[in-house]
Design a protein around this nucleic acid. Sequence first.
DNA 1: CGGCATCCGTGACGATACTG
DNA 2: CAGTATCGTCACGGATGCCG
Lengths: 212, 212
Amino acid sequence: MPRRSYDQYCALSRALDVLGERWTLLIVRELLAGPRRYTDLHADLPGVSTDVLASRLRELVSDGLVTRERVTRPATASVYELTDRGRRLLPVLTALSGWGAPLLTEPHPTDAVRAHWFALPMLDLLLPPVAAAGLAGTADLVLDEVVCLLRLDPADPGYADAPAERPDARLHLDLATCRALAERRLTPAAAIAEGTLRIEGDTPLAKALREA
Amino acid sequence: MPRRSYDQYCALSRALDVLGERWTLLIVRELLAGPRRYTDLHADLPGVSTDVLASRLRELVSDGLVTRERVTRPATASVYELTDRGRRLLPVLTALSGWGAPLLTEPHPTDAVRAHWFALPMLDLLLPPVAAAGLAGTADLVLDEVVCLLRLDPADPGYADAPAERPDARLHLDLATCRALAERRLTPAAAIAEGTLRIEGDTPLAKALREA
DNA sequence: CGGCATCCGTGACGATACTG
DNA sequence: CAGTATCGTCACGGATGCCG
């Protein structure tokens, strides 16, 4: 039985037929941080009910955006991972994230927060200068003491919620600075001058980031 | 009473709180073609029920993406128009449209079709070369005999479903060519060589498009 | 314990009819 | 023309239960 469709011969409508249901794009956001088990997804998506999560994952697999693999260690579990087609949603997520940045004012008391949710706007900010310099590498994002990894590779950009073993650069900043950078109210150079952004490392990538 | 929210401190979630409901982004797509009356919107969004359309428009107005104005000529009507904030959704729509392009294979028998729905992928294709050349202007898109207007102005891109009075260029192509271009299976240069794309005009903009 | 399936209450949605 | 009113249906959210 086919899913509900807009029945319009339009690329946007077709994309929304696949992605438009509740939670779908947020699941993709989680999976952009790397392979995830069902329980991890459920933990990082507070409010999603178990059946809706299972249903969305099934749809994502059948639409070719996600693969599912069973593992037996440490426990029997399903691991979900984005396919290449799914990873190509990164520009969609960064565009949406960029548009939504001004809506991110003060946190609501009931808001959940995860560090890797801020990787999306930072990728949007840092990937262009890295690409312009013809570089690729990784950077740790240290946001209010919590670390996540940015894969600053124009050919295969992404992020993870764990720090890298040997990052090419390490960025220290707080939430307010991150928001200001995401909204383009502040340039990286100005943030460095202010002292609210610190970029460690002596690799070409770290230097390129400092000059961005 | 507040609307349903994901309650996540994340720019993407915030964007989806505003845009994630059914029909919302398709209404924005329609309004990117210029001011529209309620009846026009209802006609170009087959399947949307009157109450849902009215409700979405109210939400869009209250979220600052759309303005509503009452006019009395030719008849008493409401005219809806995107605000600047709403127009800034163009990159989001082109990203989604670009991702969805490969899903646009053969039309389903029940699919609706409108010429200006193809303006989105064409803007995505043509805006970069126009911007790179430092130009701005308008072009008519003649798609299987149906015409719509592309506003190829990097500072204020958009489209309309009516032809321009004096377009700087005029593009003739059919649906299959349009799809191939949108998916990047075909370059404009190759399409011109094949004869499936014809670009008329002797303005700098027309020349830039031919060289793209 | 992880990964769902089931049940149920609520709200969103779609179709039609109707009104200022 | 531009919606509101009504109603049936389905999607969603929360809780519970089952099964390897």
